[in-house]
Design a protein around this nucleic acid. Sequence first.
DNA 1: CAGTGGTCTAGACCACATA
DNA 2: ATGTGGTCTAGACCACTGC
Lengths: 245, 245
Amino acid sequence: MPLDLDIALDRSSPVPLYHQVASAFERAIREGALPPETKLENEIALAQRYSLSRPTMRQAMDQLVRDGLVVRRRGVGTQVVGPPVRRNLKLSSLYNDLQEEGAEPKTTVLSLENVTADEGICKKLGLSAGTTVQHLLRLRRVDGRPLALMENWIPPEVAELTEEVLEHDGLYNVLRKSGVDFRMAYQTVGAAAADADQAEQLAVEKGSPLVLMERTALDSRGSAVECGRHLYRADRYSFDITLVN
Amino acid sequence: MPLDLDIALDRSSPVPLYHQVASAFERAIREGALPPETKLENEIALAQRYSLSRPTMRQAMDQLVRDGLVVRRRGVGTQVVGPPVRRNLKLSSLYNDLQEEGAEPKTTVLSLENVTADEGICKKLGLSAGTTVQHLLRLRRVDGRPLALMENWIPPEVAELTEEVLEHDGLYNVLRKSGVDFRMAYQTVGAAAADADQAEQLAVEKGSPLVLMERTALDSRGSAVECGRHLYRADRYSFDITLVN
DNA sequence: CAGTGGTCTAGACCACATA
DNA sequence: ATGTGGTCTAGACCACTGC
């Protein structure tokens, strides 16, 4: 099983070699060129085949493992993972999540104002009590039908938001353009019942189940730049996660 | 800021050095010895301090980054992350998840029988249509109060389950003892309303919001060994996730 | 400019799985 | 006994940040 993938490596590209290799394998797996159960060559042979050192090839394989595309067994080898199910929808990286956040279609700003943050928000954002923050409430629609009710709190020193900008771009894109460098997020996903207001906004019946997501996002300096509480229609949204051991 | 942690490295231990180092830093951070915003020494100095090569020290730092404890910036350095919030509850690895699954208190087996798997289950488990699988329905209580209604499907060749064993141990522990080597899981988290039966089992009102989790678990050979559909009381359960860029 | 993390190399030894 | 992935070393050069 030589299975030569004919990967075109560009050593002058700013894209790391291990990422070029991993991307090529990922595409091959998704396109079926490497069907499930396929056994890959060993790491040393792969490294030689593509003229890389073994650590670099290993770094590429690490990425495939993290993304849940292959499985490694010591003493045995590396195989493409079994069922081709749900391998497309993964929320396993902040990057993907933020990209989607910025790519969504229609958003209406229901409210944008400065408020005195309550204790919970202050704690989440690492602010001292009584600090003023921007409070944002948005409704997101897809195909004209409501999907999510999004409430966010942003410290004023992070960015000055305006309704106009937020109508045309996702919050994360706006913040990124203001120089915020997202790096990490703590997220909690649960469920809640829609109250009267939420039900009306989301066009569901009062008491309907909603997906509740609370998130605190940190920038590259490790300080909180945003926290949010989002409610999604349960019939139109869920979170996909790939867990790796 | 020398910040010597006095890490005791055991080079004869089966535990990898990078993991020993990462664990020591993790403990120091959680215990407050390294408060938020603390700037760590650069990687080369750290490597020398603990008599390691830089790649090994880097591997340790990688783990801290993945766990959301520190943040790295090229050209700047590595810092302990900001808010000490929710840093304890993380479901970011399958290992932790499965541990908890095995550690929970009281579980009642409501039903255990062989059934013909429907199309959806077959697809998730990678079986051909019409295969017989074990169907398991359990109710989990904590402090005597119901928490979760758990439905699982397991192919017969994976393990032969009995009610008695399942009353005393979590499903994952039972399967592990049968030789199953878990490696990966695809998970979806959403919300649903309790129907009449579910409401009664979970001691909530009909229509109450529940957290819905669907999971397919794979072993080290990459083949599906279990899939499940769990319903949790929304007032007593949620999923915590740490996302890293 | 100096200092940092990001990447990469070319080896080495070990633990483990399989035959 | 053999082959595999898991770990580790001792360097190197680069890109980026901040002064």
